[in-house]
Design a protein around this nucleic acid. Structure first.
Length: 378
DNA sequence: TAAACGTGGCC
DNA sequence: TGGCCAAGTTT
């Protein structure tokens, strides 16, 4: 069988299979390029089941390009809370504002124009344009690379950009212009449902007959991918500065807390956190209580940046959090403040006193969401 | 090219 | 339990 016939067989079998077996997903109920775009951004490195509730809430709140373009950044970040890779949210809004301003709110269908938008890389360009506009652009993600590496027995490291480009070229040669969107989605769907990373269901695969890896018994060995490095360790000590809120009757029933907004770039950009600092610590973090000098340094930093003098009261909890590239060991101490006034200095350093209802409005990374869950459960 | 950038589920 | 993985992009 010639290579060309093999490819034609693949395309036809895949399309037939996809039409019959595709999942009923929220973003498949629409052809609105904006909604498909939102789904593709959320789905980057993120599971379908995780995305669905976020997708529904996000579009409920921002149903159109205009609605998202006009929304406060903080609201967008809050709706993204817990989803991870938060620069996706800021980039999406920046791109949507560009679409509103430059294209009168219409998502551009030209590959170069759409691709130029913030957060739109080679995958997202192909996915959105093929699904929404049926443009014959490749959309090569991890699923697609797995399927192709097996079917064509491609043994190059899929972590290399050069490998992805090779696969994009392959797709350009195969993609049917009449069914570009279904073909791209079919490839991804096959990777998600049948040609899975472990224990692929070859016996139900529509293209098993000519799958080169299957024919050679190498389906479990592909794709080849370089191993990721272990996350580096960081030890941190954080301050929960709590002050009772006075009521008219003279008692109190709730607290205010000092929160700090992270820098505009980098890890967890613009999200809110407990004031904390990195401490020098060798191995064995569970040994864990921050020593006096850590607490002293932390109190000093807080005084410098807020003008509030604080004293450590007790250890609230020791917790770990693993990002993709950093492993945090964090000890959280309760501190008592000598005052509760808001100062110019606090604001300049991105600190705020917040009540519990105000806290609910801020976007927090999961590691700090869990700290408060622990506190409020006590 | 390699590292930064989150989170949760799975085996 | 810990490493791997999931519809990647930016720098």
């Amino acid at each position: 069988m010639t290579e060309q016939i093999e490819r034609t067989y693949f395309v036809q079998q895949l399309l037939r299979w996809f039409i019959k077996h595709q999942r009923d997903l929220p973003w498949r109920q629409t052809k609105d390029p904006y909604k498909i775009w939102v789904s593709e951004i959320m789905l980057q490195q993120t599971r379908v089941d995780t995305v669905i509730p976020y997708y529904e809430r996000f579009l409920d709140r921002f149903p159109t390009v205009q609605a998202l373009a006009e929304a406060p950044e903080a609201d967008v970040l809050k709706l993204w809370e817990g989803l991870g890779y938060y620069s996706r949210a800021r980039n999406l809004q920046q791109a949507v504002r560009e679409v509103q301003a430059t294209y009168d709110g219409v998502v551009p269908s030209e590959p170069d124009a759409f691709s130029a938008l913030k957060g739109v890389g080679p995958y997202t360009k192909g996915a959105v344009l093929s699904i929404a506009y049926n443009r014959p652009e490749p959309a090569v993600d991890g699923n697609v690379m797995r399927v192709l590496s097996r079917y064509f027995l491609i043994e190059e490291d899929i972590a290399r950009p050069a490998t992805r480009k090779k696969m994009e070229q392959l797709i350009r040669e195969m993609i049917p212009h009449e069914d570009a969107g279904d073909f791209n989605q079919g490839l991804m769907e096959l990777g998600a449902l049948v040609c899975t990373p472990r224990s692929p269901s070859c016996l139900t695969c529509p293209v098993m007959e000519h799958c080169q890896a299957r024919l050679e018994g190498k389906e479990e060995q592909l794709p080849v991918k370089k191993k990721a490095k272990a996350p580096r360790k960081e030890y941190r000590v954080a301050a929960l500065i709590a002050a009772p809120i006075e009521e008219e009757q003279g008692g109190f029933s709730s607290f205010r807390y000092v929160m700090r907004q992270r820098p505009d770039t980098g890890l967890l950009a613009q999200m809110w956190e407990l004031p904390h600092l990195e401490t020098v610590r060798e191995e064995n973090p569970s040994e864990g209580l921050a020593d006096r000098s850590d607490l002293k340094q932390l109190a000093e930093m807080i005084r410098q940046e807020t003008g509030i003098a604080v004293k450590p009261v007790e250890l609230l909890l020791e917790t770990e959090h693993i990002f993709s590239h950093i492993h945090w060991y964090m000890n959280v101490y309760v501190f008592s403040p000598d005052s509760t006034g808001a100062s110019q200095q606090m604001q300049a350093n991105r600190y705020r006193w917040v009540s519990r209802p105000e806290l609910e409005q801020l976007a927090l990374p999961n590691v700090f969401v869990r700290v408060f869950q622990h506190l409020f459960a006590k």
